[in-house]
Design a protein around this nucleic acid. Structure first.
Lengths: 242, 242
DNA sequence: GCTATCAAAAATGTATACATTGTCTTTGAC
DNA sequence: GTCAAAGACAATGTATACATTTTTGATAGC
């Protein structure tokens, strides 16, 4: 498992196909249960079956596709329940990551990165606006904060699993977008406290805080799913994501 | 992801190769960092490169091998720290599974399976002996108990992740073997309490009990690793496992 | 003796032909 | 008209040839 830096250009066709297919899948270009025929994809992607097969296998191993021997790959269906439980899994995993990081302590570099993320967040919240640019900057800051903790926990298995959680559609950290300003402010305040707990070497506190931090995202999601038009909006966003 | 029943005969060469290679890897036939050349494996396994490549990719996705583009697959190195953290991850995941199962409740069938497992465990402990047969029966009972809870939690992501934890060498549930009778008895008593908490619909209690249950296995492991000859014994077992 | 460079060898990446399996349609019997 | 069996078609599984990249080792230069 264990992915390489995604900003590096892919050195093989196989990797390029993985990225293209993943984007297509997340953009909702395949209906749940739909088969992904190897030959058709070859035409569309301009490569032979070999890299396509490898890419399909990888996406299946990430949980995006189903595979049955001699019958190929089909688009997986993600029920609301699966998305919710992905957040539940993420909550306990990120809680564990925070605990382990608090136990091990932060390197000087990681500490600086987190301080920067907290500072950037403070700034962004002070000049709050609804532009895409602003939201994407917030998303980057948020990802930086969380990823630093995952890495600092020092467990590759844990890092990989958090990645798998985020592969489930709609449960990417970028989805802060869907929620209200008040929730975002509260969550950024969580970040400050989590950092405090890690710096203060309080493993148990770090775990509880992080766990509830992620769980609150789940709650926001569930709440917004209770109004029917919110469901539609959310699904639209997933479908349209390119 | 999501594996099929392992007792079914594999319908493709690829699946057969996955099982053979996994066994070879777990048997310690490859040194950490050693490259697994496709062509050599072809000769050894009697199939062409195509199924071998697919199998290597699958084992890499399970975390057993490392992959670098244009450079192939290498045997991964598992430090003691990685094994320990695999248990830590498993502890929070199985704790979550127990909580979710306690929330959702057990089906009549699952309940019967767990009652059977508890009963079998009681029997086995009453007629304790050190035979391989006895230990393997205990391992089956233990797996049945835990797997029923994983499945009852109703989250495929969670099930798959617990599976991944168990792929880490030395962290398979069958390794009860290495520990003392007293520990085994205590752990079976944990099972009774966990079952009680699930039946009584006490999610929080089920989670805490399960989490500590798995953590205690980690502790036994760490303890047995503190004596040097125990380390050697353990490594021998891993190397010799066929 | 060490390092750098380049060529040969070997390994992985890719395309494609063939084999096997699954699926669908047609045909036949009841 | 319905069902079943057989065959044609299409999709996946496998082998293999070729392309590209990495690795190795030998040679030249310092």
């Amino acid at each position: 498992m264990s992915r390489q830096r995604s900003d590096e250009p892919s050195s093989t066709r196989y990797e390029a196909v993985v990225e293209k297919l993943r984007a297509a899948v997340l953009a909702g270009e395949f209906a749940p249960g739909e088969r992904l025929h190897e030959v058709r994809l070859t035409g569309r992607l301009g490569v032979s079956r070999t890299p396509v097969r490898a890419a399909l296998q990888k996406l299946a191993s990430e949980g995006l596709l189903d595979y049955t021997p001699n019958r190929g790959y089909t688009m997986r269906e993600f029920s609301v329940g699966e998305v919710v439980s992905a957040y539940e899994v993420r909550a306990v995993l990120e809680g564990l990551a925070a605990r382990l990081t608090a136990e091990r302590g932060l390197s000087e570099h990681d500490r600086a990165v987190m301080v920067q993320a907290l500072h950037d967040g403070d700034d962004l919240l002070q000049h709050w606006q609804f532009s895409d640019e602003h939201r994407s900057a917030y998303g980057r800051m948020n990802a930086s904060f969380h990823e630093t903790i995952h890495a600092a926990a020092g467990s590759r298995l844990l890092t990989d699993m958090v990645f798998l959680c985020q592969q489930v559609p709609v449960s990417s950290p970028r989805n802060v977008v869907a929620f209200e300003e008040k929730d975002v402010r509260r969550r950024h305040d969580d970040h400050h406290r989590i950092f405090e707990a890690i710096i203060g070497r309080e493993p148990w506190r770090a775990e509880v805080l992080m766990r509830d931090h992620v769980t609150s995202v789940k709650s926001s999601l569930v709440r917004s799913l209770s109004s029917p038009d919110a469901v539609r909006r959310l699904l639209d966003r997933v479908q349209a994501r390119s």
